[in-house]
Write a protein that binds this DNA or RNA. Structure first.
Lengths: 222, 222, 222, 222
DNA sequence: GATGAATGAGAGTTCATTCAT
DNA sequence: GATGAATGAACTCTCATTCAT
């Protein structure tokens, strides 16, 4: 015996196989470049079964987006301890984010590259997830601001713009880290944390942000 | 009277019309989502003429990428005065970049969103342009570092990673500024300049980077 | 009732229908003149199904050539008894050849007219089959020569050239017999056999080749 | 000085250039495979000029057929001396035929391969020319028959069928001689003359047809 | 007389999607 | 529950043909 012909599997399992195949195919070929044939083949099922379970290409893509978005936000949430100070929370969130995207490159490609370029029904889906993260970061920045010097608290809109920049930088660095060999998640997170917290100015003046516990987080390599 | 049927135009003019239409269509629909029919219609010509002048969909897309990449780098180069100090150069470059992308949203979409997701022949084309910019920013960071405190000069690899983060942040902010109404190029550039130069830490401690001339560049609104 | 919509047939049957339609269409219109639409219509199926089963126009044409070439050589081989003397073998081969081409005019047109004019991938396919036949005839001529007067055995090259002429004459006569009404296969074979074996000189001197069994094979009609 | 831009040529010359280009292109690509663009390019003129002079692709192809057919029949006619005995006339005709087709391979391809496979308006054009030649050969065979033994004169229909076979063999040998290197026109004509006049039987019994002294065959070279 | 500019019509091919079994 | 059979619609690309200059 063996799994040569593993027919008659419970629906949930089959569905997961299909989504796995779809995420991989959409992530590499894009929405239009991916064909239902290829996805069905990769999932090891017939095409009509894909339609029976997932209705249409649109629905299938949406299901991929939702699953991957949920997985990413869950991973980040799970990595952050909300009782810690803001900078520590940010550090942990970044670490979780870079780790998850590195481990799920196809899922990340679906979210970051493909869903955003394929047009409205899908872009909105991703936008919602992103908004959640940006809001979280905005709050973090606000908290840190209040906990810092009292002279000048950052107004909300300013904090939002900064959160946008920070999240954008993280997204770009994730793509860069996934593409460039030898750049682990921890290092990407370190680079960005330094950049964000100390700024170029601070870095050049020898005042880097210092990560917790593991004393040395090198900015790039060395 | 009336330009109802403005036929028979010199080749150069028609070609520009076609590229304009193609950039707009590719930018909004993506490479595969765009149809040559739609492009020809939008350009006001017949499909065969598009093929006569631009050869194929691939060639047309490549021509779009090249034109837009050249326009963007030209705009940034024109905006920067290489005799100024590094932070001023960065500021001017960002301003030029945000201004140009705001004025050419479709061109920017082609470069940033579509070309990178459509696969190798095209992604490489954009990668070359981006590399040029990243190198420029890396040098800027290096220069600033050498001009600052001598205690610790940033190593090249560190500067490169920071440049990557900075460029990535700029790219993301450009998309954000183009999408969010009421965020002009100047403000996007200001936010990013502050973020990069002072860092969140610096900002929260009331040490923002101060832009030249026009005394106050508020981070977000104001 | 009625077979108005006889859908859902097994693949093998559909494939044969498609090949039949393709042979007919290619035979009459030529490779380029035939459209996949027409072939699909004639086969009673939709175009995508033709592509699903036969891949491309090129592959479809190649499949036609192979099928018809195999059928023709099989028919000739089946008609010839290799234990008989050379002239009897030639007679039987010609008879089988003219009979088969008369019964499959479209297949013969594909092989003789269309495949040879459509360019290299296809011409080579037919050339191989023809070579087989020419070789067979060359051997026959050589055998007959050895069995005849010993004064002068035909050298191989001469036999090959004669075989070429004989096969060429047969091909031309096949087209003529197929086009001219009232010229049955048996008569075409008789004419050629006389021409080949006795030559014009022998015929005019009243020394025709005499076919076996059925005493009288008239040269043309009568 | 210099023919760099040899514009403004008399119509007759331009037309000949176009026909030359057309014969070459049609001969190699076939009617449908040849594009008016390629023909105009090869002729060194613009496409509208081709249309101005030759009206349409159909007309152009017809013009090619007519010109090449006229040239071929003229060459054969010029090679034959009608005062000689029948076998000598046949020999001279074959020699002229093989010589002309060897010297005009594209023209021969248009007549023999392309025009016959492209469908009715064109096939009829070639058929007429061929009929002329077949009739000529039929007469030759009849003459020879009457001049030979009186026992049995060949009936007309028999002579016609033999003429058909002879012409068919000649056509096939022409293609073979043009394709096979090292087979000059004289040899092809010799092979066929032997085949036709003596027959395989006669050849094998050592009674070949003997060509006239080489001296007075001025058809090809000398 | 000669041509650059332009197109209507149709070709091969692919794909998301649905029955009938 | 699962699939082999089948298709409507759309897409890229080409070609013969014609104006306007």
């Amino acid at each position: 015996m063996g799994e040569v012909k593993s027919k008659r599997m419970p629906r949930a399992v089959r569905e997961r196989q299909m989504l796995d195949a779809a995420v991989r195919t959409f992530g590499r070929r894009g929405y239009r470049g991916a064909s239902m044939d290829e996805i069905a083949d990769l999932a090891g099922v017939s095409k009509p079964l894909v339609y029976l379970y997932l209705n249409s290409k649109e629905d299938l893509f949406t299901a991929c987006i939702r699953r991957e978005a949920a997985a990413l936000t869950a991973a980040v949430r799970a990595g952050v301890d909300p009782t810690l100070p803001a900078d520590r929370q940010l550090w942990e969130g970044l670490l979780a984010f870079f780790t998850h995207t590195a481990e799920n490159p196809d899922g990340w490609a679906v979210l970051h590259l493909q869903a955003r370029t394929t047009g409205e029904p899908f872009a909105a889906e991703v936008h919602a997830m992103r908004e959640e993260i940006v809001t979280f970061v905005t709050q973090l920045i606000g908290d840190a601001s209040r906990a810092g010097r009292r002279d000048r608290e950052l107004p909300l809109q300013e904090a939002a713009a900064l959160a946008e920049a920070l999240v954008g930088a993280a997204e770009s660095l994730a793509a860069w880290a996934n593409t460039t060999p030898g750049v682990p998640a921890r290092q990407a997170a370190g680079t960005l944390m330094n950049f964000a917290w100390a700024g170029l100015g601070g870095l050049m003046e020898g005042r880097p942000w210092t990560p917790p516990e593991r004393a040395q987080i090198p900015v790039a390599a060395g």
